[in-house]
Each structure stands twice: as structure tokens, then as C-alpha cells.
Design a protein around this nucleic acid. Structure first.
Lengths: 162, 162
DNA sequence: TATTGTTATACTCTATAACTATA
DNA sequence: TATAGTTATAGAGTATAACAATA
């Protein structure tokens, strides 16, 4: 599976794009902004799912965003344990600036790519994301000799759209 | 440029594949093994270029590989400052095991992808790598007002293939 | 009792700078 | 003087575990 090696390579490309970002908006922060900008208001657990990182890490990123006034947190009427997160006006501006910078770097390196090529790659990556789905670290690393662990209802019922 | 956001996504997928690797072979180490397995014997600076990381980081990874006997280092007769790196027999085995594990994870998530789809994505990623070329961190972050910095012969002459 | 989110801690990975040896 | 590589140090990013508040 040659794809495995290519994936390591893409991580390198991601680093390169990240290096071009200003210090105020490191890659992980921009990733959080992008997720909120693309999918709109959501709660912490959902953001962690989009970012494919543990919720504890997400919590720190969100604190970082809130300290700078880039997001607003409103109470979730249906579950007072959590709050809903969305970009503020300032957050939108920071996101736009970061996205523009990232796009510049990509455009500079991909100058000989046609729009179709870029769209094709983008589409395949989006599809790959969907194929991977929610794949954050999980407490079980069980091999096949643990029939009960995954049975039953591993996920709690969702009481409202999020 | 939607592609910028997709790139963050791929980084997440890379993490997911990395999480499946055993602790003895963390993702960065597997990346080094893969580069040596794919491109064969090379010197440190060339490996750093493939991995898109600073040579100091590469030095530590290589030390890690050497301590475990996964590579052999032979003298470079044309330049005694550097040594040539290549996989040992044990290194080949470790690489094979790691690649297999990574391939398993990918296959599990991409079970509904056709071979053509995978090849297409793999090809586009390879092309993207070539488009980015050598893009490790550089000491100059100069904007356009520095005409002399990049002129002349920025790279030393290559006295032999590496 | 289970779940959401927070905090403390440790580990992986990478970059910068100072240094040695060789070209 | 310049380059290849090493080591020390600092920082970003993430995972694990213990915890508080709510369901």
C-alpha cells in the first residue's frame, strides 16, 4: 500500500503550509477556526471529532480561542454541561487571513496545477475524511478476543442535532 | 482554496494511522524507514529533504534507528564529514511490519474504495510532493526586498550521485 | 452511574542555536 | 570560509488520567 508513505509526505506538506502561518495563529488553532467556519456552531465534543483529536486537547485550543475573543460560547439549553461554540466577528477575520495565507502558499507551489487537478485532489481528500469518520483515540485497543467490549450501545443517544 | 482545510484533515488521518503503530515504531521513525526503503542508500541531508524536517531532527531519528540496528552507516569515501545510510536486514523486517500495519488501517477504512480510486489519490499526492519539492525550514524569511540573497550558487556542487 | 468538559502531567515531534570535524 | 552532522534547549501538539459538574 504505497498510499501509507504518501500520507507521511502530505504531513510534511502540511508542516510547510503551517510554517507560513503567523505565530499568533499556529496550525492547530487555524484548524479549529476552519472547522468552526466550515460547519458552524457546535459543541466541544463535535469539534474534537472534526479535528480528530482528544477532547482534552480541544478544550485547550478552545480556551486559546476564547481568550482572544475569536469565538463566543453560549449556553446549551438542553445540556448545561456543555456550551455551544461559534466564531465571533473577529474570529471570522482571523480565519479569513489565515486561510488566505495558506492558500497563497499552496498556490505558489501548485502554480502548474489546473483547477481540475486541485478539485480532484480536494474531492478525494474529502472523501477520505468521510471514509475515516470519527477516528479519535479510543480506550479500547482490543484484538478479536473481547466479544463483549464493543457490543450493546457504545454511543449515547443524541438528544438533539449537534 | 478548500484544499487548505482538506490538508488539515489528512494530518488527522495520518495521526489515526500513526496511533495504530506499535510504540517501538512511532510514526516519525516509520517515515524514516519508509524513505530509506523506497529510495535506498542516501546521506543524512538527503533523508532530511525527503522527510521535510530539519537535519538536526533527522540526526536524532537516525541515531534512534542505529541504536536498534535497523540501519547501517558506511563511510562516504568522497566526503568524510558524512556517512551513507541504508536499511539493515532487521530494518527491512521492521519496515515491512510497520507498512503492513499501516496498510491494514488504511484498508479497513477504505474498504469501499476501488483500486483505481486509491491509485488516483496516491498519484495526486505523489505529484503534490514533487510540486512542493525541498521545503524544509530555511533561515531566510525575506520578502521581495533582498535581491542578492538567492542569487549565485545557493547549493554546493554535487560531486557524486546521492 | 454515565457523560461533558477541565486540568495536570508526560511524551512525541520539530526548530533554533552553538558546536565539532571536514571540505 | 563554508558545509555535514551532533547536541542542548525550547516550544508546539497530543494522549492519559484524575477530577468537577451535570445528566
Amino acid at each position: 500500500m504505497e498510499l501509507a508513505r504518501q500520507l507521511r509526505v502530505v504531513v510534511g506538506v502540511g508542516r510547510e503550509v503551517g510554517r507560513a502561518l503567523p505565530p499568533e495563529t499556529p496550525p492547530a488553532i487555524v484548524g479549529a477556526l476552519m472547522a468552526l467556519g466550515r460547519y458552524g456552531e457546535m459543541r466541544m465534543s463535535k469539534l474534537a471529532e472534526y479535528l480528530d483529536i482528544d477532547i482534552s486537547v480541544t478544550s485547550r485550543h478552545v480556551a486559546h480561542l476564547a481568550e482572544r475573543g475569536w469565538i463566543v460560547r453560549t449556553a446549551d439549553a438542553l445540556d448545561r454541561r456543555s456550551r455551544l461554540l461559534r466564531l465571533s466577528a473577529r474570529g471570522e477575520k482571523v480565519l479569513a487571513a489565515s486561510s488566505d495565507r495558506a492558500a497563497e502558499v499552496l498556490a505558489a507551489h501548485l502554480s502548474d496545477w489546473s483547477d481540475d487537478d486541485v478539485d480532484q485532489l480536494s474531492g478525494l481528500l474529502e472523501r477520505m475524511r468521510l471514509s475515516f469518520g470519527d477516528c479519535r483515540p479510543r480506550p479500547y485497543a482490543a484484538d478479536s478476543a473481547d466479544p463483549g467490549a464493543l457490543a450493546g450501545a457504545p454511543h449515547p443517544p443524541r438528544t438533539h442535532a449537534n
